[in-house]
Simulated scan of single mutants.
Amino acid sequence: MTQALPTAALEQTFLNARTFNKFTDQPVSDETLRQLYDLAKWGPTSMNSQPARFVFVRSAEAKARLAEALSPGNVAKTNAAPVTVIVAMDNQFYEHLPEQFPAVNAKPMFEGNAGLAEATAQRNSALQGAYLIIAARQLGLDCGPMSGFDPAKVNAAFFPDGRHKVNFLINLGYGDASGNHPRGPRLPFDAVATIA
């Protein structure tokens, strides 16, 4: 990378981007969802582990199953969103390491240590969910990430075999700014960072 992105790209991705609570009824196509993943997948993960798994919840039946697990304040907006992404993690991601990270035989390190595998899956699937948000914004989509849900209910409804576990949710579509709250401030550099 040789130069900074233009201001317009920074504005769309971060500076003017918002968390949306309301979306238009414009659908999000399968092609757009595939393009979204194909962009987000390039974000780095530890040992190229790629533990995130994504369920794009769009059908009425799947939305109804998800609604049972949501906090009351998240039900209406999630039902109205064109798509809700379940960002989950695969605790057996290491099965793919021989192909995804051939430089080192890392599979045994995780296969024999469930705690390390879970911590790695949790951290890196969260990263991948963040990459998905950035990619969505770059493709002209808006996002409403959420953590207001019962993880056990989501896992039972969508991952009954126990191999995958939900990390967080993202409502996805084309935002309607009338549902936005006033933008909250961000902490300044000196409150959160030091240069050592």
Rank of each mutant, 00 (worst) to 15 (best):
129 G>F: 10
154 V>I: 15
155 N>C: 03
142 D>E: 14
165 K>H: 15
188 P>I: 03
74 N>I: 01
63 K>V: 01
142 D>R: 02
187 L>M: 07
139 L>R: 09
120 T>A: 11
112 G>M: 02
124 N>W: 03
157 A>V: 05
143 C>D: 13
126 A>N: 08
156 A>V: 01
190 D>I: 01
111 E>R: 03
174 Y>W: 11
122 Q>E: 11
189 F>R: 13
113 N>H: 09
174 Y>E: 13
128 Q>I: 06
111 E>D: 12
115 G>M: 07
160 P>G: 07
64 A>M: 02
99 E>G: 08
87 V>H: 10
84 T>L: 10
131 Y>M: 07
153 K>R: 15
131 Y>A: 11
86 I>M: 06
189 F>W: 14
137 R>D: 08
111 E>K: 13
68 E>C: 01
122 Q>W: 15
88 A>T: 02
147 S>A: 14
127 L>M: 15
129 G>E: 10
140 G>W: 02
148 G>S: 09
132 L>V: 03
182 P>T: 00
111 E>L: 09
172 L>G: 03
143 C>Q: 07
65 R>V: 01
83 V>R: 04
73 G>W: 01
183 R>D: 08
64 A>N: 05
95 E>V: 10
80 A>W: 02
87 V>Q: 12
167 N>S: 14
157 A>D: 05
132 L>C: 05
87 V>Y: 09
165 K>C: 04
86 I>A: 08
68 E>I: 04
93 F>L: 13
161 D>G: 03
179 G>M: 06
73 G>D: 01
93 F>N: 14
97 L>I: 07
188 P>Y: 06
169 L>T: 04
106 A>E: 05
150 D>A: 14
70 L>P: 09
186 R>C: 12
118 E>Y: 11
